[in-house]
Design a protein around this nucleic acid. Structure first.
Lengths: 127, 127
DNA sequence: CTTGACCTTCCAGCGGGTGGAGACCCCATC
DNA sequence: GATGGGGTCTCCACCCGCTGGAAGGTCAAG
């Protein structure tokens, strides 16, 4: 399969797939004309990557997950560990954003938003 | 004031302050020895930037907010508009993360996390 | 006069791609 | 055989918002 078809099947831009090859996540073969040739297993891998990335796993997480996926003697504990770390990151990020949201929400509510210059948002930023 | 003191007062790393000068957010003077010299108003500006960044505003937002702050004839509507746009971004981000959290949370819960290879997390990623 | 803390510039790199230039390649149509 | 259009190739630059480090200048204290 050529990169364009793979892009369609895996739901990733061709550019991203090339980038994933660059950083060693997939190793497609090359045909005589120099085009990348993807096996079914590569397409599968890329779809896996797409889903892992959609869940917010970092590229390095993805690398580890792919390794574990390929290793049928893995311990699920290892996978779970990675996922839990990531869950922690997500929770921290949500907490951070929620706090921003609260502060900023209050400020926005208290701002008249009219033609006058008085603005609690700026007042707060300026302290 | 030299950059080190400003860093302390404004709560920003010196590197960041230099960067902010680079992109035109502050314009400190220079003393004879080439050192940056910050006026009180610069320090104030940098503290403003620090707070705006802590609320997640982009650098470009900050640039606009500083301009509005300096303009005593501003309409608070303009400030509110920027803040509301940002609020929307935050809300979308929170929604995205919350969805990730839900999916990943379920997967993590359903994973035994022991020495055995069976893993619902990998199973889900592989589809 | 030296030491050590500060300051300067410049260049490189993070993560995770994305855009574009310029050049091949392949197939279909005239 | 020429031409056109789509795919593909590599390479380099850029996005954001810094951050780290190297190599050097400056200043005050001891």
């Amino acid at each position: 399969m050529n990169i364009g078809d793979v892009a369609t099947h895996a739901g990733l831009p061709a550019k991203t797939i090339r980038y994933y090859e660059d950083i060693g996540l997939v190793q497609p073969k090359r045909s005589a004309n120099g085009y990348r040739t993807f096996r079914q297993s590569d397409v599968h891998k890329l779809a896996f990557l797409g889903r892992a990335r959609a869940l917010g796993f970092t590229i390095e997480d993805c690398r580890s997950l792919l390794k574990l996926y390929a290793d049928t003697a893995r311990a699920s504990a290892e996978v779970k560990h990675i996922a839990q770390e990531h869950l922690g990151r997500i929770d921290r990020k949500i907490a951070e954003l929620t706090e921003m949201r609260a502060t900023l929400g209050n400020l926005v509510e208290s701002c008249a938003g009219d033609h006058r210059p008085d603005c609690p948002i700026l007042a707060d930023l300026a302290v």
